[in-house]
């Protein structure tokens, strides 16, 4: 297993390099002088000279890429001109908040989605199945940013159960309880679409597995039905559900950009949007590479989980 993880990590290197190439290529699309574009309103002659020196902007593209790559590998993501602080510091500060939000939403979508899929499949065409199907249709069609606003209207404004937005109360905030009350709405709003997708695909995977001969064998052995469903069938269905969960992680990360904006959550998604609106391109560039790299690593973890679950995968 250790060797398998190592092999997967090594195989991620070209993907990570590819990501940097793509981001670099996209950023090269910027029309006009890159130094001025990057600095935007902060394009004083000193700043232009400094950024040209730091990033080698006067050099050919290939050299510029390697300078940038080398800088990043040494932890030097450049400086955010709108915030006037190192890009990496800002990213690391923000990433924790995104991790809490997206992580919670991911766990919610995995647990609720799989559970709903199992219930739906085991009661196929029954009322529970129809109710879940209906909820799934609504869930995957509602824009998460609209859902977030609806939740604020209902639970914060009308019912006053939960705080409107933010991560901690501004006055006297802090602590786990405060965090949790602020987390509930954004986490659910973020999880809904992914939960719907996971539920739908889990249902299909379970229906597929329940038709297999080894399920009949389990029943012929006299295994209680609950155990047939939650043990034999779910275990086999997980083989096709786990890759779906890997994909959903990408959707949850993407959705976090909207949800962080709606709920004023101080995460990396909102940072990216603010950075784009302020034309702080180095911050955008660094943030995109950082999050994409995290996502690649997460997918390796998914592959490893998959190989632990399925002994037929050669490790």
């Amino acid at each position: 297993m250790g060797r398998y993880i190592l092999r997967r990590l090594i195989s991620a290197i070209p993907v990570l390099l590819g990501i940097t190439v793509i981001v670099f290529a996209i950023m090269s699309l910027i029309p006009g002088d890159p130094a001025t574009a990057i600095l935007g309103a902060y394009a004083t002659p000193e700043n232009v000279a400094r950024i040209n020196r730091d990033l080698g902007l006067d050099q050919p593209a290939i050299q510029r890429y390697f300078i940038w790559l080398g800088n990043m590998l040494t932890g030097e993501f450049g400086r955010s001109y709108s915030l006037n602080r190192p890009v990496l510091d800002e990213i690391l500060d923000r990433f924790g908040a995104t991790l809490i939000l997206a992580g919670t939403a991911f766990v919610l979508c995995a647990v609720l989605g799989v559970l709903a899929g199992v219930i739906s499949a085991s009661r196929q065409y029954g009322w529970a199945d129809k109710a879940i199907t209906f909820a799934v249709i609504i869930g995957i069609s509602i824009p998460s940013f609209f859902l977030g606003m609806l939740m604020i209207l209902i639970f914060a404004v009308r019912l006053k159960w939960l705080p409107v937005s933010g991560m901690y109360a501004i006055y006297g905030g802090g602590g786990l309880g405060d965090l949790l009350t602020h987390l509930i709405m954004p986490a659910f709003a973020l999880a809904v679409v992914a939960t719907g997708v996971v539920a739908w695909l889990s249902r299909g995977a379970m229906l597929e597995v329940l038709r297999q001969d080894y399920i009949r064998t389990a029943r012929a052995k006299g295994v209680p039905e609950r155990r047939v469903l939650m043990g034999h069938a779910l275990r086999a269905a997980m083989v096709s559900i786990i890759p779906v969960l890997g994909l959903q992680a990408g959707f949850v990360l993407s959705g976090a950009v909207y949800i962080e904006t709606v709920f004023q959550w101080p995460g990396i998604g909102r940072m990216l949007v603010d950075a784009i609106l302020k034309r702080d391109l180095l911050l955008v560039q660094g943030g995109v590479v950082f999050v994409a790299a995290i996502y690649v690593l997460f997918n390796i973890a998914v592959d490893v989980a998959q190989s632990m679950l399925d002994p037929r995968i050669k490790t």
Binding site: F251, S254, Y295, N299
Partner: peptide, 16 residues
């Protein structure tokens, strides 16, 4: 390998 919105954001960032 990108979460789709990151790519979209990068493109919008570059093009404005």
């Amino acid at each position: 390998a990108f979460p789709y919105i990151l790519l979209a954001l990068a493109i919008v960032a570059a093009l404005g």
